Computed example of a mutant assay.
Amino acid sequence: MAYIAVTALSHVGLVRDHNEDSLVVGPWTLCGTTTRSPQTLLFPLGRPLVVAVADGLGGQPAGEVASELVVRELALLGPSLDGALAIEDALDRCNRAVHSATEGRPDLTAMGTTVAGTLVMADSLLSFNVGDSKVYQAAADGLRQVSVDDSPPPEPGHRTTSVVTQTLGGSRAQHVLTPHVRTLPLAPGDRYLVCSDGLTDPVPDEAIEDLLRVHDDGKAAFELWKAAIEAGGPDNITLALVRIGG
C-alpha cells in the first residue's frame, strides 16, 4: 500500500527566547514548542495531505500568533484542497485571517509570517510558498529548491539576506498575495524537505544535500537540526521531511 511518511521537528535554536515557527502535518499542528527528537507520522496516499512550515516574522510583534493562525487554517482546509487554485484561495484566506486578528489589537499590529509547504495528492505533489521559507526536492540526482524565495539577491559577499518582500500579514493594510505554486509528479522514493530559514541560513544547500543522501528520514532530520545548532542556532529551526513510500 502506498503511503506518505512525514518526519518533523521544531526547535527554538540557541539565540531566540521563544519559538515563532509553527508546523502543520495533515490535522496535526505544532506551534511555538520545542522538540529535539524527530517524530514520524504515516498517512495513506490518496487523500490530500498538507505539510507546511510557517515562520513568524521576527522584529515585529506576535510572529508566533500569525504562524499559528496560518497552520491551524491549513489544517482545517487541507482535506478539501484539490489543486493549485485551491491552494491560492487557502493562502488568501490565511492572509485575511492574519489581518483580521489584528483588528482592535494594537499588540498584534503588523504581525506576519511566511509559509512554505507541500500538498500531496494521489497522483501529484504541489509545492507552495509565500516568503523565504523553503521547499526542496531530494531526488536520486541531487537536491533542488522548488520554492521561490520572496527576497532580493544577497549583497556581495553574503550567502543570505534577511529581507522578505512578501508575507502573510506583516503590514497594516491588507495586500494582494502572489503565492508561488508548482505542480510536480509523484516519484516514489523522492523526498521533499520543507523548512524555515533557521535551517537554510546557517546550513548551506551542499551540506543539506550530503546529510539527506547518507541518512534515512529520522537520522537526517536530527542531523539537519544538529548542523544548524552547530552553526550557532541563530534562529528557530523547523523542518519536515516528506517521503512517498510503497
Rank of each mutant, 00 (worst) to 15 (best):
Y3M: 10
A5I: 09
A5V: 11
V6K: 14
S10L: 08
S10A: 09
G13S: 06
L14T: 06
V15F: 00
D17M: 04
H18D: 11
N19F: 01
E20Y: 01
L23R: 05
L23S: 02
V25M: 09
V25H: 10
G26H: 10
G26K: 08
G26E: 10
G32P: 03
T33M: 14
T33S: 14
T35N: 13
R36N: 14
P38T: 05
Q39K: 12
G46V: 06
P48Y: 08
V50Y: 05
V53R: 03
V53Q: 03
A54T: 05
A54D: 04
D55Y: 02
G56P: 00
G56I: 02
Q60A: 08
P61K: 09
P61H: 07
E64K: 04
E64T: 04
A66F: 01
E68Q: 15
E68N: 09
V70K: 01
R72F: 00
R72L: 06
R72Y: 00
E73H: 15
A75W: 07
L77G: 02
L77Q: 15
S80E: 14
L81G: 01
L81P: 00
G83K: 07
G83I: 13
A86M: 05
I87A: 00
I87Y: 00
D92S: 13
N95E: 11
R96C: 02
A97R: 15
V98W: 14
S100C: 09
S100L: 12
T102F: 03
T102Q: 14
E103N: 04
E103K: 09
R105E: 13
D107S: 12
D107R: 10
L108G: 03
T109H: 11
M111F: 05
M111D: 13
G112W: 00
T113S: 15
A116Y: 02
G117C: 04
L119Y: 04
V120C: 14
D123M: 11
S124R: 14
N129H: 07
N129P: 01
V130G: 05
G131D: 01
K134H: 12
V135W: 00
Y136K: 04
A139F: 08
A140V: 08
G142C: 06
V146Q: 04
D149R: 08
D150R: 07
S151P: 00
P154Y: 08
P156Q: 10
H158L: 10
R159Q: 12
T160Q: 12
T160W: 14
T160V: 10
T160K: 11
V164Q: 05
R172F: 09
P179E: 08
G189H: 07
R191S: 12
R191F: 07
T200Q: 03
T200R: 05
P202V: 07
V203I: 13
P204W: 08
P204Y: 09
D205Y: 10
E206Q: 14
A207R: 13
I208Y: 07
D210N: 06
L211K: 01
L211A: 02
L212C: 06
H215G: 02
A221L: 06
A221E: 04
F222S: 11
L224Q: 05
G233Q: 03
P234T: 05
D235K: 01
N236R: 01
I237W: 00
T238W: 01
A240H: 03
A240Q: 02
V242H: 12
